[in-house]
Design a binder for these strands. Structure first.
Lengths: 248, 248
DNA sequence: AGGAATTTGTGCGTATGTATG
DNA sequence: TCATACATACGCACAAATTCC
């Protein structure tokens, strides 16, 4: 709740409060108060610069911050827009993406962005309980609910065992079904490690997010019914779209 | 887990690949390969600018990206440093802070910052399965490992049942022992909901963090052996100090 | 104790590239 | 084809926090 109309666009300089931060607060207040509606286009950067009597770069720094907070999103040649979304996503020890999403009445979809094989790094080999120098299959995938990207992840799988899995994945659009073709009737998540950080620019793009939004990073290890590691995955979830639920 | 990637050692200009992105890849590869060890100081921005033959702003753009990825951290007047590994913090049905930390060879400590009683909000009452308008005990606590704040949290407990628990907590320095005095020989975590966001100024202060750090927010519900909800807790974990581990 | 040096943070001015409509 | 608007990059200057001497 800042002031009235246009007048209160004054910036206090040299007061220990960075100019760009003050601009962030102004615009965030406008969004919060509904003066800038979800989906609305902000004035362009030059106009904002004039409004606040600052350089365009200073406006850009403020807009980058708002994007990081998930409040706005910039699009080249079009403008900068107020974000709207909000999407909930549960996760558990026996997570099946498709089941979870569809049980929530949403339409689950997944894309295989890329796949290749490579020699496992020391870290990957250790987690998958493979000898140093073993080959692994790498899958880069994106999963969406109702067309909105939810998770963007990279998986590593032991290679002699799962050669050709990428094609099955692409065909079935389900890792569970693809696993079945390789004799994995069931699998479970042995461990998940969770951290959070700002999304890097490329990651944000894959998740169709504003740059520098906060993402939760999940590193999970799937094991087959015999307890043998079969898949190590690092997935990114947009923190302002997803709430993880553990247990129950 | 990042990889095997071999970043180009030279900066290609005008090739559709932004210069600052190439610098990101170069430095990330150095960190991944161990040429830059955890805790090591990077060359200062001017030196990096000369190394890559770019402007200091371009280096800064790359460093901001690396900071977003959690690989480095900048500090005014000191330099930019490779981030240290995080403390693994298991989240499970039987999470016990003291046990977790001490099993990791660290010294666990906890402080009761404040306690009071109040009428439960609708949300709190619902989660604790209490009638509207019920009284609850509120505890604000901070837990540390080796003197470094790890978690800062607020708990709500049903009040007729746990009146006086705050004093026991302060005496025993252990919620587990305090519960025992109220006939709760055992309890478990029924559910944990995890999100992440930027820390507010006061929260950052309590966690001894720089402002604007990212925190993971855990809302967990503890139940006694009969399955009755006894404690609803919202805890903040510094995302760059802690890695939550689910399962196993 | 205190000032100088070091290093990151902020801000301005300018120029050019690229995507959109 | 053209104007618009964001993206990248360079150069300069000063502020703020820390460390060094």
């Amino acid at each position: 709740m800042t002031g009235e109309g246009q007048a209160a666009r004054t910036i206090a300089r040299g007061g220990g409060h960075a100019v760009w931060r003050q601009i962030v607060e102004h615009l965030a207040a406008d969004i919060d108060a509904g003066r800038l509606q979800p989906g609305a286009r902000l004035p362009n950067e030059m106009a904002l610069a004039e409004t606040f009597s600052v350089n365009r770069h200073t406006v850009r720094r403020a807009l980058a911050e708002l994007a990081a907070k998930g409040l706005v999103r910039a699009s080249i040649g079009r403008g900068t827009f107020v974000e709207l979304p909000r999407l909930a996503y549960p996760i558990g020890p026996r997570t099946r993406f498709t089941e979870i999403v569809e049980s929530g009445g949403r339409e689950a979809s997944g894309e295989l962005i890329s796949s290749d094989s490579l020699v496992a790094s020391a870290e990957v080999a250790r987690r998958l309980n493979l000898p140093e120098g073993a080959s692994v299959l790498r899958l880069v995938t994106r999963r969406s609910a109702d067309g909105v990207p939810v998770a963007y992840g990279t998986s590593f799988l032991p290679l002699p065992r799962f050669a050709g899995l990428a094609e099955r994945w692409a065909e079935y659009r389900s890792i569970t079904k693809a696993f079945a073709d390789f004799g994995v009737a069931d699998y479970s998540r042995a461990e998940t490690r969770i951290t959070a950080r700002e999304a890097a620019a490329d990651e944000a793009a894959e998740l169709d997010l504003a740059a520098r939004c906060i993402v939760m990073v999940l590193e999970s290890l799937n094991v087959d019914s015999a307890g043998v590691p079969i898949q190590l995955t690092r997935s990114l979830f947009a923190a302002d779209r997803v709430e993880l639920v553990v247990g129950r």
